[in-house]
C-alpha cells in the first residue's frame, strides 16, 4: 500500500458543492449538520479545538492539522486508512505524546502543559487500541481506579480506613451499576486478566465512565471484538451520547461508522481531508479514493 496513492488535501475543494447539498438537506435533523462540511470548519459549540497541530517521526509527518473542532455532546468518528495518524492524534491530544508544534483547547481552556493524568482529571479520558485492563487486579478494582478525587488515594489518608470508607462504598455502588449496564456484573470479582478480549474492551469503557467524563476518546473500540459484542458496544456508545457525554472514536472500517456517528472526520497522511455527516462523507470521492486507493493497491500486490 504505497502512501502516495492516498490523495492529498489539494483535491478536496473540488467536492465542496456536494458537501453543501448534504448540509442543506439535513438542516432540520441536527444543529451540527447546519455546519458547512469542509475540513477544519468552525462548529457551534466545540469541546475541543486544535490549531496547527503537527507531529513527525523522523522524516514522516504523522499528524499535520491546520484546524479541527470537535462538537460537544455528539458522537464523532475519526476514520482514515492505516497510518493516517489517528492514534497519533489521540496520543497528542490526551498528552501521551508531545506535539512538535501547535496548540489545542479543551472545554474552553487552553491546554498548556499536556500531561495525560491532568487532562484525565479535567474530564478527558481515553481507551487504547490494545486494551489496557489491569490484569492482576479484579474487575471491581479496575472500576474503582476510574473514580476521581479519592481521599484514600492520598498517602496521608491511606492508612486510616474511616477517612475513605464511605467514599469507597459510594464508588463501589457506582461501579456495580456500570458493571451491570455493561454486562460484566458476573465477572466483578474475577481478575481482569481472565476476561475475553471483548469483555476487556467493555471493562475499559466502563472504567472510563467512572469519572463522569466530559469527553471520551475510544481508540478502535470495535477492533477484535466478536460481532454480537460489537453491537452491544455500539449501543453503549449511542447511550453515552444521549447522556450528554461527547464521544470521539477511531474506526478503521467505514461501514461501522455510518450507524452511530453524528459527524465523521477523515484523516489521511496526518491531514483532515474531509469532515461532515456520515452519509455524505462516506460517499465523498476524496474519501473513497483514500480508502479504495489503498484497497486496490492492497489486492494487486
Amino acid at each position: 500500500m504505497p502512501a502516495d496513492r492516498i490523495p492529498s488535501k489539494e483535491s478536496a475543494p473540488d467536492d465542496r458543492s456536494s458537501f453543501m447539498d448534504s448540509a442543506r438537506r439535513t438542516t432540520e435533523v441536527e444543529p451540527i449538520l447546519t455546519v458547512h462540511p469542509k475540513p477544519g470548519v468552525a462548529k457551534p459549540n466545540p469541546i475541543l479545538t486544535m490549531d496547527g497541530l503537527r507531529r513527525s517521526f523522523g522524516g514522516l509527518t504523522a499528524v499535520d492539522i491546520d484546524h479541527l473542532e470537535i462538537e460537544r455532546g455528539i458522537v464523532t468518528a475519526l476514520i482514515g486508512p492505516n497510518g493516517a495518524g489517528k492514534t497519533t492524534l489521540f496520543n497528542l491530544i490526551t498528552g501521551f505524546d508531545r506535539a512538535d508544534r501547535g496548540r489545542w483547547e479543551f472545554n474552553g481552556q487552553m491546554v498548556t502543559s499536556p500531561s495525560p493524568d491532568r487532562l484525565a482529571r479535567r474530564g478527558m479520558v481515553r481507551t487504547f487500541q490494545l486494551t489496557k485492563s489491569l490484569a492482576k487486579l479484579s474487575v471491581l478494582q479496575n472500576m474503582l481506579l476510574g473514580a476521581p478525587h479519592q481521599i484514600g488515594e492520598q498517602l496521608w489518608a491511606a492508612p486510616f480506613r474511616p477517612l475513605w470508607r464511605n467514599q469507597e462504598q459510594a464508588n463501589t455502588e457506582r461501579a456495580d451499576e456500570l458493571l451491570e449496564q455493561f454486562n460484566l456484573a458476573h465477572m466483578r470479582d474475577e481478575l481482569a486478566g481472565t476476561l475475553s478480549g471483548g469483555q476487556r474492551k467493555l471493562l475499559e469503557m466502563a472504567r472510563a465512565l467512572m469519572s463522569d467524563p466530559a469527553l471520551v476518546m475510544l481508540d478502535e473500540p470495535m477492533a477484535g471484538v466478536n460481532p454480537a459484542l460489537a453491537q452491544s458496544l455500539l449501543g453503549h456508545i449511542t447511550e453515552l451520547a444521549l447522556s450528554g457525554v461527547t464521544v470521539v472514536y477511531i474506526e478503521h472500517d467505514m461501514d461501522v461508522v455510518s450507524g452511530i456517528s453524528d459527524w465523521v472526520v477523515v484523516l489521511a497522511q496526518g491531514q483532515v481531508i474531509a469532515e461532515g455527516g456520515p452519509w455524505k462523507v462516506i460517499h465523498d470521492e476524496v474519501v473513497i479514493d483514500a480508502y479504495l486507493g489503498r484497497r486496490r493497491a492492497g489486492t494487486s500486490s
Binding site: 495525560p116 493524568d117 489491569l134 488515594e153 491511606a158 492508612p159
Partner: peptide, 29 residues
C-alpha cells in the same frame, strides 16, 4: 498492609500493571 489495602495501594498496583492505563485514569504516576 494498611497502606497497600487502601485505594492508594490500588493505584500502585495499577501502575505496576500498566502505567499508561493509570495515567489515562487521571493518576499522577
Amino acid at each position: 498492609f494498611l497502606i497497600i489495602r487502601s485505594p492508594w495501594g490500588r493505584v500502585l498496583k495499577s501502575i505496576r500493571e500498566d502505567q499508561d492505563a493509570a495515567r489515562s485514569l487521571g493518576k499522577n504516576v
